[in-house]
Nucleic acid binder design. Structure first.
Lengths: 345, 345
DNA sequence: ACTCTTCACTGGACCGGTTAAGGGAGTGCG
DNA sequence: CGCACTCCCTTAACCGGTCCAGTGAAGAGT
C-alpha cells in the first residue's frame, strides 16, 4: 500500500490559521484547561474551516490512548456466516464502542496459534488498546499470552476457563439444567442434546451439566452429540438420533444454537415426524430465526446484544485501569413456543 | 483509555542489540536491499530474542502504508445479525486481507451522514488505507466524499449508482429477469416479489427489472412489496400477499434474501398452504439456510464469499495505484430445489 | 598509486500529534 | 513600588518508526 496524493491538513495548519501554536490546538481538542474561551473558539473555528480532525495515529504514537478494540474470531467462515450470535454480539459491542468513538478491529483466524500471533502483533504494534477474547478452550494459550503482554482484555467465558482474566459469562450449566428439567417436567424421559464444537470450553460445561441433570433426573435415555455448529451437522445429528426405533429414540432434543435447531425441524419433517407431537425441539440463543419457523421454536433465550454491550463496557473499564473480576450476566431463560410439548406416548 | 505499564521494546533496542542503527533494522524488516545477509540475520535474531515487531502506528505515521481497510455498515443491528450475506461477505474480504496481513476496521452506523463522518475521520486520521463501501443509494453522498478525500475505495454496487468509483457488482437486473422467466416458464402467471429496503439502489434496480420482466411476459398479476429485509417484514408481506382469494393471489413469490423466504415458508405453512403445490417460493443469496428448511428453498445463488474476496482484491489493486473501473462478477444462477414447481391449477 | 564505483551502513530530519517546563502579562497585596 | 501568584500560551522534547543524503571501506579500472 502506498501513500496518497491528498494534501493532508495537519495540526500545524490549524494552529497557523488560528494564530496559535500546535500545543494550544492540542489543548483545545483534548478539552484541557489552560486556554481562554476566545482562543478555544478561534481554534475550533479554524479546524472546522479546514476540515481538520486530529490524526489518531499520531495521537496514539504520542503515547496517549488507542481507540481501537480487537476481536479475532476463530471459527470456519461457513459456520460464522450463519451464526446469528456473532453478528448480534458484534453489534452489541459496537453500540458501546460508538459512544466512545472507537472502532472494532476484526480478524477471522484459522486456529489458536494464529489468533495468539494476531493479538500479539496488534498489541505490540499499538494497533489496539485492548481486546475481546472469545471461544475459550481448556488450557487456553491466550491466558498466558495476556499476562505476558500485560494487555487489557475481557474474556468471554466461564472463569474456570479464563484463568485470572477479567471475564464476562453466562451460566451455561444452570441454563442446560433448566432446559433438561423443563423437558423432564413435560414428561420427556429420553432427551438428547446436539452440542457444539467439542473443543470449546463452554461446550464441555454444557455437556457436563447435561450429564449431571440427566443423572439427577434418572432419565431413561440421554444422548449427546458434538457438532461443528453448522446446520448440516445439526441435520446429520438429528437424523441419526431419530432413526432409532420409536421406543428407543429421544422424544426431545436440545440444540446448542438456533441454526441446528432449524435444521433439526426440517429433518423431523422430512422423516415424517411431527413437532412437537413426536419430538420436541429446543433451540439455544433465540435469534429472530426461532420465530420464523413453523412451528416456532422454543428456545433458551438471552440478550446477546446486551451481552456484547456489557463486554465492551467491561473492557473500557479494564483499559482505564478499573478493576477486573468476574462479571456474570443473566442466565438464559426458557422461552416456550410451538416446538415443545409433552411427548405423545 | 490510558497507556499501559508494559515496557515496550522499540526499534532502538533491537538496533542496539544487533549493534547497528535504527535505519538498518528498518531496512531489514522491510526486506529492502542494502544489507549483507549476515547483518540481516543478526537483526532478525535480535528482534526475535527481544520479541519485537514493528509498530504499525509509527510505521503509518512515518508515511508508508496503512494496513487496515475500513467497512462501515449501515443497517439496523437486528437485521444484520440474521443476514447471512454480511458475515459471508466479511469472511470473503478477510480471507484476502489475511494474505496481506491487514485487518478490517468495522463500524456499525445508523445513517448515511454518520457513515460519511466515520469514513472521513478514519481517512483523515490515517486509520485506514482504503475502504469498502456497500449499500449504495441514489445520489449517494459517498461518491462525492470519496472524490473530495481522494481515498482509495471499492464500491459494492452497480456503476449507475457508484458514479465514477471503482465498483464490483452483480447483475441484479439480469438475475431478477431470470427468476421471473423461470417462474413463468413453470406456468406461473401471478408472481410477487418481496423486495428489500426501498432506499437501496440495488433494490430499485431489481424492482425496475421485475416490472420490465413482468411486462414483457404479460403476466396476469405482478406485485412488489418493499421491506426492511427482516424476517418479520418478510412474514408480514407474505401474509398480506397470500390472504387474497385463491384466484387473485400470487402463485409464486420471489424474495430479496434468504431470511424473508424462510419466513415466507413458515407463513405459508401457518396459512395451510402447501409449498410448492399452492405457492412457489424463491429465495435470494442462497446461504446454507436454504438447504435447512423443509421443503428446501429454491434460490438465486451466488458465491458471496468469493464476491467479498474479489472486492478485497480490487481494493488492494486500487490502493497500490492500479486502475479502477467496473468489475462485474458472475450473475446469480438459479438453483431449483423443493420450493418451486408448476402451479397446481 | 590514483580515481571511480559499488556496497553496507549511519545520522538525522520528519511524520502529526502530546506534554512538561517555561515565560510574559496582568492582578492583588504589603 | 516590588513581589508573588495566576492565567494563557509557547517552546521543544519526545513517541517509534521511514527515508534519504552521506560516509567509509573494499574492489575495479587505468
Amino acid at each position: 500500500m502506498t501513500a496518497t496524493p491528498t494534501p493532508r491538513v495537519t495540526i500545524k495548519d490549524v494552529a497557523a490559521r488560528a494564530g496559535v501554536s500546535k500545543g494550544a490546538v492540542s489543548l483545545a481538542f483534548n478539552h484541557k484547561p489552560g486556554l481562554s474561551e476566545a482562543t478555544r473558539d478561534r481554534i475550533f473555528l479554524a479546524a472546522r474551516e479546514l476540515g481538520w480532525s486530529p490524526s489518531l495515529t499520531a495521537r496514539t504514537l504520542a503515547g496517549s490512548r488507542v481507540d481501537v478494540v480487537g476481536l479475532a474470531v476463530c471459527r470456519p467462515a461457513r459456520v460464522l456466516g450463519l451464526e446469528p450470535w456473532y453478528m448480534e454480539f458484534v453489534s452489541g459491542v459496537e453500540s458501546v464502542l460508538a459512544e466512545h468513538s472507537s472502532s472494532l478491529l476484526l480478524r477471522l483466524v484459522r486456529n489458536m496459534d494464529e489468533e495468539v500471533g494476531v493479538q500479539e502483533a496488534w498489541w505490540r504494534g499499538r494497533q489496539i488498546g485492548g481486546s475481546i477474547l472469545v471461544d475459550f478452550r481448556a488450557d487456553d494459550p491466550r491466558v498466558a499470552m495476556t499476562e505476558r503482554l500485560g494487555m487489557p482484555v475481557v474474556a468471554v467465558g466461564h472463569p474456570s476457563l479464563t484463568g485470572g482474566l477479567t471475564s464476562v459469562w453466562t451460566d451455561d450449566a444452570t441454563a442446560v439444567t433448566e432446559a433438561v428439567r423443563y423437558l423432564a417436567a413435560l414428561g420427556h424421559r429420553r432427551i438428547a442434546r446436539v452440542g457444539g464444537a467439542a473443543d470449546l470450553g463452554h461446550t464441555s460445561i454444557r455437556t457436563a451439566a447435561f450429564d449431571e441433570a440427566a443423572g439427577a433426573l434418572a432419565l431413561a435415555g440421554a444422548w449427546q452429540v458434538a457438532t461443528d455448529f453448522s446446520g448440516d451437522a445439526g441435520a446429520r445429528a438429528t437424523r441419526s438420533l431419530l432413526t432409532a426405533a420409536p421406543a428407543d429414540r429421544p422424544t426431545a432434543i436440545v440444540y446448542d444454537n438456533d441454526i441446528m435447531a432449524v435444521a433439526g425441524l426440517s429433518v423431523a419433517a422430512e422423516m415424517g415426524l411431527r413437532v412437537p407431537e413426536d419430538v420436541s425441539l429446543l433451540a439455544w440463543d433465540d435469534s429472530q430465526l426461532c420465530r420464523l419457523t413453523h412451528p416456532t421454536l422454543s428456545a433458551m433465550s438471552h440478550d446477546v446484544h446486551g451481552f456484547g454491550a456489557e463486554v465492551a463496557r467491561t473492557l473500557f473499564s479494564v483499559i482505564t485501569g478499573g478493576e477486573g473480576g468476574s462479571h456474570p450476566v443473566p442466565t438464559p431463560v426458557l422461552t416456550p413456543r410451538g416446538s415443545t410439548a409433552p411427548p405423545k406416548v
